[in-house]
Amino acid sequence: MPHHLMNLRNVPDDEAEEIRELFESHAVSYYETPPSRWGISMGGFWVHDDDEARRARALLDDYQRQRQHQQRQRYQDGLHRGEVAGFWQRLVRHPVRILAACLAIAVIIALTLAPFLNLG
């Protein structure tokens, strides 16, 4: 029975390539299905064997922990260098866009909660 290891929808090309290299370097016999153009099928990495699935899952979990740490570190470094804008920097650069987004969020929350607030 096939085991789905990872969804490929919205996965960056560099991450998918690194996972392919990881599986190939550890001789994991996997196969890949691409995500559909219209978002109907998710695509992903698959294996057939239960033992292979456990081994691949362990490799994938370790890889994803490392990638998460690496990406967070890259983001923090960008914040410290001023290359990545935080909320306040974005507000200063694009005040109308940020305030419009906040207003839209408030309206959506109000419309969502209005039926429950009018019960009493």
Rank of each mutant, 00 (worst) to 15 (best):
R97Q: 05
L111H: 03
S29D: 15
P115S: 10
H26V: 01
T33H: 09
D14N: 08
R90F: 00
A106T: 05
H3E: 14
M1P: 15
D14V: 01
M6R: 12
R97N: 02
T33M: 04
H69V: 05
R67T: 10
R67D: 09
F23H: 09
L99N: 07
D49W: 12
L113Q: 05
Y31P: 00
F45G: 10
L8S: 09
H48Q: 12
E18A: 10
E21G: 00
D49T: 06
R72W: 03
L91P: 06
R57C: 01
G39F: 02
P115C: 04
A110L: 02
Y63G: 03
D77F: 06
L22D: 05
H48A: 12
T112C: 05
V28F: 01
E17A: 10
L91K: 14
F116Y: 15
Q76E: 11
S29I: 10
R55W: 02
I108S: 08
F45Q: 09
S41E: 13
V92E: 15
R90K: 11
R65M: 11
F116H: 03
R74Y: 04
L103A: 14
R9D: 07
G44A: 02
H4K: 12
V28Q: 11
G43H: 08
V47S: 07
Q76S: 00
H80A: 14
N7R: 13
F45H: 11
C102N: 04
H4C: 07
E83Y: 03
L8Y: 13
D51Y: 07
L79A: 04
L8T: 14
S41N: 15
A16N: 02
R20Q: 11
F116K: 00
G82S: 04
A85D: 12
D62Q: 15
P95Y: 13
R55E: 13
P34G: 02
L22Y: 01
R54V: 14
P35F: 10
L22V: 11
V11K: 01
G43D: 12
A101E: 06
A104V: 11
Q68P: 02
G120Q: 07
Q71Y: 05
A58S: 10
A27E: 15
L60W: 08
N118M: 13
P95A: 07
A106M: 04
E17G: 07
H26S: 05
Q89F: 01
I105H: 08
E15N: 02
F45R: 07
E52V: 01
R54H: 12
A16G: 09
W88K: 09
D61A: 14
F23M: 02
L59K: 10
L103C: 04
Q76R: 08
E32D: 04
E52I: 04
A110F: 09
L22H: 03
S41A: 10
Y75T: 01
R37M: 00
L22R: 07
E21F: 03
P35S: 03
L119A: 08
L5I: 08
A100E: 09
